[in-house]
Structure formats: structure tokens, C-alpha cells
Computed example of a mutant assay.
Amino acid sequence: MHKGIFIGILILLVAVSCHSSPSEEGSVGELREAINTRLDKVEGDFAVAFRSMGAEPVTLLINEKETFHAASTMKTPVMIALYKQVAAGNIALDDSVKIVNEFKSIVDGSPYSMDLSVDSQEGLYGKIGQYSTYRELNFQMIMMSSNLATNILIDKLDAKKVTEAMRSLGAKDIEVLRGVEDLKAYEQGLSNTTTAYDLMLIMEAIAGGKAVSEEASLAMFEVLKAQHFNEIIPGQLPKNVTVAHKTGSITGVRHDSGIVELPDGRRYVLVLLSKNLKVPSEGIEAMADVSRMLYEYIKGKER
């Protein structure tokens, strides 16, 4: 090879080497390893589903198809089903709805009532026999995770239609079978279940304006922003970061699923699920750490 050509090629190779950055795959791989290392310090099982919004989305998935008890994360599907019925003209958000505390088990139709001591929203219990609206019940279901509001809405909307609404969004595994505290169903293993991947798809639909409609998606985003329980995804994020999300918890289970919006307008979807937690507070802390790690990763990327 001619000496001049050889030197030219050498200079070109050096230039490419100096200006190339680590591959996106390598960067995400390192992040995944760091997340796994953090979660491995806690006794329990976890799933993570993360995807940035935009023309070139970054995705990070860990145990994304593993099944978890949905706990209160199933309330986001109920909200979507509500807005779908509104869009179809079957109901209006400001229609009156009677507040009741008697529901039917999916096992045999026998009646059961909600226990105030295990609900996170006690205000509605003082209004039993009175009337509210779909809009207010939805707000209480999401913001305060009211189980009573949830059961009233599921009774009106039909759990099967809630699951059907999720299938229309591409969520193939999430199952909304029943309302909350149906003990007969629980004893027979009939519980609402989800995967991190499906919750990611659902939150993506809301973030992208594709859950029912752009207008409905924006309205749902605003309701999710009002979330009262903020220990996990927003737990270690700056106050100027917006998080529209829905949590969930039962024994040994702590979940969070939502949309994170940076001050510059960039968004990403994050789902953090856990089960078999020996010490729930440790699980919460670990997932909050993971949320911070993903935020810092996105913040550090060029827009």
C-alpha cells in the first residue's frame, strides 16, 4: 500500500475513534446492570419497564412479562374504560352516581361490603346513600386510591369491558377481573393481575394522546398528576419534574407506574413492580433509587 494512502487511512481511523461515543446498547446495558445490582440488595422480586418518548425511544426492560398482583395499578385501566364510555356517549363525567357500599362477588353473586379500616379514602363512606359524579369518583379512585370509588365505577363499567379496553391498547396480559375486597374471589385465586410491560403500554398510550383520544388522554394525565402517594417514582426526583402516576400496594407488594415529564418537555414512561417483599420500606427505597437512576440517565442525554 502506498505510504500516503496508509497514513490517510490511519488518520481517518483515529478521527472516527476519537469522535465515536459508546453505543446506546452498551449504555443501556450498563444502566440495566446497575439497576439489577441495586434491586438485588433487597429481598423480593421486581420488574422494570422503561421507555423514553420521542423519535428515537430508549427502552429498558427487566422481568417485564412476569405476572404480578395488580393491586391498585388496575385503577388506571378503570379510568381509561370510563373515558371510553364517555367518548361513546354512554355516560357523561358529570352524571350523578349513587354512593353505595354493597357489591356482588364474581364467584357466586353474594353481597359483600368494603371495610373502611383498609381503605385509603374515608370521605366517601360518610356519603353513602348520597350522590356523586363519575368525575369525582374517578378523581378519588386515582388520587387517593379509594377502593369504594373503584368498586362503584367497576360496578357501572363492567370489569370485562375494562379488560377489553386494555386489549385495544395492545396490553395482552393484564386482567381486571373484579373490584376490591372480593374475598371469595381472592380465596379462589381470582385476582387482578398485570405485567410491567402492559402497564408501560397503557401509560404510553396516555402520554402519547392515544388512550381513547388526545383530549381524554390529557384529562387522564391531569388526574394522574394529582396522585397523593409519592414515595416511589417521584420520591427522589427534583420538585420541578412532573410525575403523573398510579401506585399500588398490598401485603409484600409495592408498585408505581407513570409518566415522567422533565422541565424541558421530554417525557418517559416508567413502571416499577415488586412482590414478596420481606421489608416493604426497603423495596420502596430501592425502587425510588432506580427511578432516580433512570431520570439522571435521561437528563444526561442530549435533547
Rank of each mutant, 00 (worst) to 15 (best):
H2K: 13
H2P: 15
G4A: 14
G4F: 10
I9A: 08
I9H: 00
L10I: 02
V14N: 11
V16I: 15
S21M: 13
P22K: 14
P22C: 09
S23F: 07
E24W: 11
E24T: 14
G26F: 11
V28R: 15
E30G: 15
R32P: 02
E33P: 02
A34H: 08
T37P: 01
D40H: 14
V42R: 09
V48Y: 04
F50N: 06
M53L: 14
E56C: 03
E56R: 13
V58K: 15
L60I: 11
L60G: 08
N63G: 09
N63Q: 10
E64C: 06
S72I: 04
M74Q: 12
T76R: 12
V78C: 03
M79S: 09
A81Y: 02
Y83P: 00
A88C: 01
G89S: 06
A92L: 09
D95A: 03
K98Y: 01
V100R: 11
N101G: 03
D108P: 03
S110R: 10
S110G: 09
S113W: 00
S120C: 11
L124M: 09
Y125L: 09
Y125K: 11
G129D: 11
G129Y: 03
Y131P: 02
S132K: 09
T133W: 09
T133P: 07
Y134D: 08
R135L: 05
M141F: 00
M141T: 09
I142P: 08
M144T: 12
N151A: 06
L153D: 06
D155A: 12
D158W: 00
K160R: 13
T163V: 01
M166G: 03
A171I: 02
A171D: 07
D173A: 11
V176A: 04
L177W: 03
G179W: 06
V180P: 04
K184V: 00
T195W: 07
T195N: 09
A205P: 01
G208Y: 00
G208D: 13
G209R: 08
K210W: 01
E215F: 01
M220C: 05
F221C: 03
L224V: 05
A226R: 15
Q227S: 12
H228C: 04
I232Q: 10
K239F: 04
N240V: 02
N240F: 01
V241K: 08
T242S: 13
S249C: 02
T251C: 02
G252E: 08
G252M: 07
R254N: 14
P263Q: 11
K278R: 15
V279F: 06
E285D: 15
A286H: 08
V290G: 08
S291W: 00
Y295E: 06
Y297R: 13
Y297W: 14
K301F: 01
K301T: 10
